[in-house]
Amino acid sequence: MRIDRVKLIAEMARQDVGVADLSQRATVSRATITALRGGKSCNANSVRRVASALGVTVESLLEDGKEH
């Protein structure tokens, strides 16, 4: 699953959340957050955890026109 890196970065900035803080909240590694911010693909469970930690839907983080 690939999310829109710009949407993720913007949401993190809006909430003033850093990589380390988000990784702790989402219980995923910092490397996973860094990979997502870099536009890499990630497993659906990690994406769900990150979205939940940010209080947003998975769909709001997905690339436009992509299904989960």
Rank of each mutant, 00 (worst) to 15 (best):
R30P: 04
A51N: 09
V6P: 00
E11M: 11
N45L: 12
C42K: 00
K40R: 15
Q15S: 13
L22Y: 02
A26C: 01
V6M: 01
T34H: 07
L62Q: 10
A31K: 11
E63H: 07
D16Y: 02
G39D: 13
K40M: 13
D16K: 09
Q15A: 12
A53C: 06
R5D: 12
G18E: 02
T34Q: 10
G18A: 00
V17D: 03
K66V: 14
Q24H: 03
R37H: 10
R30V: 08
A26N: 02
A53P: 01
G18S: 05
V47H: 02
T27Q: 08
K66R: 15
V47L: 15
E59Q: 15
G18F: 00
I3S: 06
A26I: 02
I9A: 12
S23P: 00
D4Q: 01
I3C: 11
I33D: 05
V19Q: 06
I33Y: 05
V19H: 03
V6D: 15
R37F: 10
A44S: 12
G38S: 11
M12A: 04
E11R: 03
E11P: 04
G38D: 09
K7P: 03
E11N: 06
S29V: 02
G18W: 03
H68Q: 12
V58A: 07
A35M: 04
T57S: 15
A51S: 11
K66W: 13
K40L: 12
G38W: 11
D4G: 14
S23G: 02
Q15M: 01
D4W: 07
D16M: 09
I9Y: 02
S41D: 15
M1F: 06
V28G: 04
D64G: 13
Q15Y: 04
R48D: 05
V56Y: 07
A26R: 00
R2P: 14
N45C: 00
L8C: 10
Q24M: 02
E11T: 13
L61Q: 15
E59Y: 08
S41I: 06
I33A: 04
T57R: 09
M1T: 14
S52M: 06
T32P: 09
R30S: 00
R37W: 08
R49Y: 02
L54M: 09
S46R: 05
R48M: 08
D4H: 08
K66D: 13
R49F: 02
N43R: 14
R5H: 08
S23I: 01
V58G: 03
S41E: 13
K7Q: 08
A35H: 10
L62V: 13
R5N: 14
K7I: 09
V17C: 02
N45Y: 07
R14S: 08
R49I: 05
G38R: 05
L8P: 07
R37Q: 15
G39R: 12
I33H: 05
E63G: 06
D64E: 14
S29N: 03
E59H: 13
V50S: 05
L62M: 11
D21Q: 11
V19A: 02
R30M: 03
R48C: 12
V6S: 04
V50W: 10
S52K: 13
V28S: 04
N43E: 04
T57D: 15
V58L: 13
V58H: 03
S46Y: 08
A51K: 11
G55C: 01
L8A: 01
D21H: 03
K66H: 15
G39I: 10
T27I: 00
A51T: 11
R49A: 12
V47G: 14
G65L: 03
L36T: 09
L61M: 15
I33E: 08
I3V: 14
